[in-house]
């Protein structure tokens, strides 16, 4: 066992470095962000991916070099190169531009359906866990029904009866999110409603609705954020699969899923870039949201803040 004085390099503690690692010199918004980035490098990586996709979606008309809908018969199945950065599909549409515009669809569907699903899931879960009794029983049965409906069948019915559209795709994808969120919120609510701090609020004469919103809901947010980011990834994936099956976002919107389905069967050998790049876009988007979600959970839970 080397004594500290014999081995100064290994034992010496640089207090400035240790303090910085513990977040002592976080003074404002920027240094706080930098501190979190250092602590969660993977999360920062995920955040960068998500930010890139969000920027691509927001500024698509300025970033995309060509019109994603413009066909060019002479460029049919053009390989990646100087003219078509990621190649062109069989109609001669620029893949790079289509993937950039596709980010709009994926993110819009992913965010909107996750938001809708969480909104209803939180409301149902809170009511169920807090009011108990027949309300709980009724909500639980509704949730069972929701879970029993297969997503694809529902999307098919919605597409058949209402016509495939962006809105219907969002609603169809949001419905299976509801039971997940509601179950997590309910079980958390059941535990939280017995906590002494809830009793303290009751002892003060606080109304039950206010207790649910002020004391119970904020304490269920951490699992919901983790769930929501996981759902965001899977919603993007679901949109891709629905579009792959022709049940999702209709033409002419460029959707990553449909781009895959249009080319997977016929061109995977002859023009693999038509399959690789949309697939890569989907994987990256899902990967990024999952990394970001894990980091957000660690950061947003104040009990783990030090």
């Amino acid at each position: 066992m080397p004594r500290p004085e014999n081995n100064p390099g290994a034992m010496a503690i640089d207090h400035d470095v240790e303090l910085a690692r513990a977040g002592a010199n976080v003074t404002g918004w920027a240094s706080g962000l930098l501190f979190q980035v250092r602590r969660h490098p993977l999360g920062a990586f995920g955040a960068v991916i998500v930010v890139v996709f969000v920027l691509a979606a927001a500024f698509a008309p300025w970033i995309a070099p060509l019109d994603p809908l413009a066909t060019n018969p002479r460029a049919s199945l053009a390989p990646p190169g100087s003219e078509y950065f990621l190649g062109a599909d069989f109609m001669g549409r620029d893949m790079y531009s289509r993937i950039i515009y596709g980010a709009r669809i994926s993110l819009a569907v992913g965010l909107a359906s996750t938001f809708l699903g969480c909104l209803f899931g939180i409301a149902l879960g809170l009511m169920s866990g807090f009011l108990l009794g027949w309300v709980d029983l009724a909500i639980q049965r509704i949730i069972d029904i929701m879970q029993a409906l297969p997503l694809l069948v529902m999307a098919l019915v919605m597409a058949a009866s209402l016509g495939p559209s962006l809105e219907n795709t969002i609603i169809a994808i949001s419905i299976p999110v509801i039971p997940h969120v509601a179950r997590v919120i309910r079980s958390n609510t059941l535990a939280l409603r017995e906590m002494p701090f809830v009793e303290a609020a009751r002892a003060q004469g606080m109304s039950e609705v206010r207790i649910a919103v002020r004391h119970v809901m904020p304490n269920t947010i951490a699992p919901v954020i983790v769930l929501a980011t996981a759902q965001l990834g899977s919603a993007i994936l679901t949109e891709a699969s629905l579009s792959f099956l022709g049940l999702g976002v209709p033409e002419p919107h460029p959707s990553w899923g449909r781009m895959l389905s249009e080319s997977a069967a016929e061109y995977v050998r002859t023009a693999p870039w038509l399959v690789i790049f949309p697939g890569l876009a989907i994987s990256l988007a899902v990967f990024g949201t999952n990394l970001l979600g894990d980091a957000l959970r660690d950061i947003l839970d104040p009990r783990e803040r030090s």
Binding site: P196, F197, E199, A200, A203, P218, N219, R303
Partner: peptide
């Protein structure tokens, strides 16, 4: 008013 036994669970961790 009431004071609780457990000083941990009697305070809302998010406030």
């Amino acid at each position: 008013q009431i004071i609780f036994q457990d000083p941990y669970s009697s305070l809302n961790p998010r406030m």
